[in-house]
Design a protein around this nucleic acid. Structure first.
Lengths: 228, 228
DNA sequence: TCAATGCTTCGGGTATCATCGAACCATGAA
DNA sequence: TTCATGGTTCGATGATACCCGAAGCATTGA
């Protein structure tokens, strides 16, 4: 954070592990509180507070006060894009270090990210859809095929209703524990809602873990068989 | 550079001012020696050596031994892209710090950036095209109009040939001395080549400066009149 | 008003890392 | 061989800033 060209400033801000973890957590698109971010980064609240003000000072974060909470989110899509570019470069360079994602196995397996399913199962879902050509396009830009629509209809998801929403139906989200794409957007949300509605899974309170029942597990595996 | 997610590693590598200056210098696309980079960064050779090995360790740089010189260059276009994204973000955030660009007036006036023209004249070129509606679209995403094609044809540039290349014809590049958009992409390269081919200008060896002759200067001004 | 929660600010301890002097290799020239 | 140039390695120094304990402010709820 000394003087220097502007990209050095950005680099040093992103370059701290705690801050990087916060940014990555925020890439879900969800706004998180300072406490949540502190836990995500593995530091105390005081330290997190300091980091957050630095991130905000650099224009990477946006703050929203709400009651006695303070929600932080990425400032805009530009920031998310740059972060994604960095993550992509890092991944291609094989620069994976320690901490290949959340340590908690349950978190790795299935967790909520924004309002959709992330973790192993999230990736499996996406892979499975793609494998069976229910999706078409690339990892970052894809759409439903006709077969895909039919499949989702069977599952009880009203695709046409989703398409009437403002936000994109199909949107990708990069899973940083798996380093793989999974499903976000309106469809991602609808899928998770449906899983919960069907009794396959439920959210564990005060955590991002999604707990699948054994029945739900089986049903999930039937609808979204593992590609391997 | 402690432990942490991979983007933290990249960030911290980029985050040092000396290293950032080196990277920026290398964005010209030219390979530079350790000594040159040390001077560019404003540190001694020993310090530069240490930085260079770190940059190389992070996969950002490529090294080529030649005689008793060592030439360093950006590892590939991915790296350049990420750096450009960072510079763009930094500029948009208004994070301008010290060093509002190259100090050398000649460098500020006209220099090569990758393979296209940057500096005052590069910005003037772009503005002029835009002003006369030879380009359509925004600063970051634009295309040639029919009038634009005709104009370039007059200048002796084969636009259709450019369109057969793989890389985009129209691409913007943010000039960090001017903090303004200028023309990159296949067209940017073709334009610079043409200026040199017409004898308007030439590259000054072992620097990024582009030197316009007085005739070339006039011709340039005729074709790309200053907007003001 | 009091208590609890969420968060920020302050202060000092500590560790990392950039920096440069000096010494050390390697290549090329005389 | 000897000298000069380009570059790396080593060691010591100094500054940056990360970190957390403790205290302080703000908002909510009782």
């Amino acid at each position: 954070m000394k003087e220097g060209p502007d990209i050095a400033l950005l680099g040093s801000v992103i370059g701290d592990p705690a801050r990087a973890n916060m940014l990555i957590a925020l890439m879900s698109g969800k706004a998180l509180t300072a406490t949540e971010l502190a836990s995500e980064a593995g530091v105390t609240l005081q330290t997190a507070s300091s980091h957050l003000s630095k991130l905000e000072g650099a224009g990477l974060l946006q703050q929203r006060k709400q009651g006695r909470h303070r929600y932080f989110a990425l400032a805009d899509d530009d920031v998310a894009e740059v972060l994604e570019a960095l993550m992509g470069l890092a991944a291609r360079r094989g620069l994976m270090r320690t901490r290949p994602g959340p340590k908690d196995p349950a978190l790795r397996r299935a967790r909520v990210c924004y309002n959709h399913l992330a973790g192993d199962l999230g990736v499996q879902l996406f892979d499975s859809l793609q494998q069976r050509q229910l999706l078409t396009g690339t990892d970052t830009d894809f759409a439903l095929t006709d077969a895909g629509r039919e499949f989702l209809d069977d599952l009880g998801i009203d695709v046409e209703a989703l398409e009437r929403e403002r936000r994109p139906v199909c949107k990708s989200c990069l899973d940083w524990s798996e380093r793989r794409t999974h499903m976000a957007g309106a469809l991602g949300t609808a899928l998770l809602d449906r899983f919960i509605g069907l009794g396959w899974a439920e959210r564990v309170p005060t955590s991002r873990i999604i707990s699948f029942s054994s029945k739900g597990q089986k049903a999930f595996e039937t609808y979204f068989p593992s590609v391997n």
